[in-house]
Simulated assay, not measured.
Amino acid sequence: MTVKRCLGIFLAVALSACSQLPRGAAVQNEITRNADAPTSDIAVYPVTRAFLPSVQHWPSVGEKRHAWIGNSRGSNAQIIRPGDELAILVWDSGDNSLLTSNEQRVATLPNIRVSESGSIFVPYVGKVQVSGRTPDSARQLIQRQLEAIVPSAQVQLSMAEGRSNSIDLVGGVNKPGNILMPDQNFTVLAAISAGGGVSAALDNPQVKLVRGSNIYATSVSTLYENPRLDTRLQGGDKVIVEADRRYFLSLGAAGREAQHDFNRDQVSALDALAIIGGVNDARADPQGILVLREYPASAVSAGVRGPRKQRVVFSIDLTTSDGLFSARNFMIQSGDLVLATESNLTDTRTILGLVGSVFGVVNAASNVSN
């Protein structure tokens, strides 16, 4: 009887402490309780078909997203820019030429760098403004000006692109470096191709275009799918290809508790659940999938343009068709926490298991005493 009495006391204490049983996550009402209280610092929104139009107008959070610029057509010819190098050959078969001799009928002017002002110096002519012209147009201009001095002169001109006619492919490709633009229709995808293609190690690669003090960004997949967005590059542009830096977290009774990178431009709540490996069938509450997000103070609004509080909990019910369809159209943002809450049945199973274990010990003790 003494053993049974001790075990009975132990069972009573264990049952009274059931609220302190170890768990992998909170239950839903522990997170959302008192959300409607005036002093609450969180707002709770069920993700439903009726709610989706409102949240689409709310500000974005997390990693800053830059705009992109569309494509435009340029000249198929090369354009001379400051910093380019020109090589000029002047042919003259006339007697007593100012430029050539009887033994050498061609005058060579190699490695002429276009000045910052866009001009070059030609003997007997002086400064010639060539920046903004095609090589053929510059050749014709020089020849016209030489003809006033040397009527029989014929000019040949070639060009080597300088920094102003090249772009820098900074990283994220197999062969980064400085790339010369063959014409004025050189696009972002053409530059990536010239760099050996995107590195296979990048997840959802993003393209960042730095032009002067401005930054533009989009994803490589967007350029693949929308050729009109394959924008034309300008001399001096810097193109950076990098992995998508956005991420979200998963905790609780999830298939995997970890930090997850975005593997596409838009990740819905259902996509996120697939990425984390679903939820634990034995522990998770399918009616209590929560997405926790914190907005800046400037986003808080009493209307449809923003949340009521900075800290927001979005509740998703996977047991209804509306909940499933709505989860497919609810987009995860960078920094979100996807929390699979614990089912209330988990505590019940733990308690029943504890009771069964205790009674097993009691029966074993009784058999020993008998």
Rank of each mutant, 00 (worst) to 15 (best):
A26H: 14
V27R: 11
A35W: 15
A37G: 06
D41N: 14
P46W: 09
Q56E: 11
W58C: 07
P59M: 01
K64Y: 15
A67H: 13
G70I: 04
G74V: 09
N76K: 10
E85F: 15
L86R: 01
L89E: 11
D92Q: 04
L98H: 12
N111C: 01
R113Y: 15
Y124E: 03
G132Y: 10
G132S: 07
P135M: 07
R139L: 04
A148V: 08
S152C: 02
S152H: 13
G162V: 09
R163L: 10
I179F: 14
L180W: 00
N185S: 06
A191S: 04
I192P: 05
I192V: 15
V198K: 03
L209Y: 06
A217P: 02
I240V: 15
F248W: 11
A258I: 05
Q259S: 09
H260K: 04
R264G: 03
A269P: 06
D271F: 10
A272W: 02
L273R: 00
A282M: 08
E294Y: 11
A302I: 14
G303H: 09
P307R: 02
R311W: 15
V312G: 02
F314G: 03
F314M: 04
D322C: 03
L324R: 13
F325T: 12
D336C: 06
L339V: 05
L339F: 15
D347I: 11
V355T: 02
V368T: 12
